[in-house]
């Protein structure tokens, strides 16, 4: 079944239907897998909306959860209910997010007498520092990821333009960009530790 024919607005599933969708998904049924992921996305948003204020963090974490469910799908025991399995992943990712959040922010202190008034446009040294930092972050990526991140965020191309230039799908561009950012974040976090 072609993915383009699949109805994006799949009706939300209950526990039994979600379980059935997972059973079918494990047997390679793409349409049911898509329905399941749409349900997971909606559940994750519901779960996180009570806990997170920042909309961008909520989007990021929802994507993280979707990737986690995708990566862990082989560990689901078909004889067990699916919702506890899903909520265990939600909890795990949320706690992981909190850990990273407090680790990166707890050491940030602002000295009131030490305001940094340097301007990127007028300070060549600062511009040089930023350029170096950008190069360093890009060096963490594999060539394809680096190319996509450069086109999207340095050259300011749209996902559609990148997709045409590299001859890959738009969704592939977005997934690669998401993984690249995740990779950079994890490298930076590792260095902070």
């Amino acid at each position: 079944m072609s993915l383009s024919k699949i109805n994006d607005k799949a009706t939300l599933l209950g526990e039994a239907e979600a379980h059935q969708a997972m059973v079918l998904a494990q047997n390679g049924d793409q349409s049911h897998y898509q329905k399941l992921l749409i349900l997971v996305e909606s559940m994750a948003r519901g779960y996180l909306s009570h806990r997170l204020q920042n909309a961008s963090d909520l989007d990021d974490l929802t994507q993280e959860i979707l990737i986690s469910v995708h990566n862990a799908r082989h560990t689901f025991d078909l004889k067990k209910p699916i919702f506890p399995w899903l909520y265990a992943i939600f909890n795990y990712r949320f706690q992981d997010y909190l850990r990273a959040y407090y680790r990166t922010r707890r050491n940030i202190t602002q000295d009131m007498n030490d305001s940094d008034e340097r301007d990127l446009a007028t300070d060549p040294h600062l511009e040089w520092e930023y350029r170096n930092l950008g190069q360093k972050l890009l060096s963490y990526l594999v060539p394809q990821q680096r190319r996509i991140i450069e086109m999207l965020y340095v050259n300011g191309n749209s996902a559609q333009e990148v997709s045409t230039a590299l001859n890959i799908s738009v969704s592939n561009v977005r997934t690669t960009a998401h993984r690249a950012i995740k990779r950079i974040r994890s490298k930076v976090n590792t260095q902070h530790e």
């Binding site: 993915l3 994006d8 994507q63 979707l66 995708h70 799908s169 969704s171 592939n172 977005r174 997934t175």
Partner: peptide
């Protein structure tokens, strides 16, 4: 965007 993302995961699963 989310739908695109979900579709890419489904393609990957296939």
């Amino acid at each position: 965007e989310e739908n695109e993302f979900i579709k890419s995961l489904v393609e990957d699963a296939a």
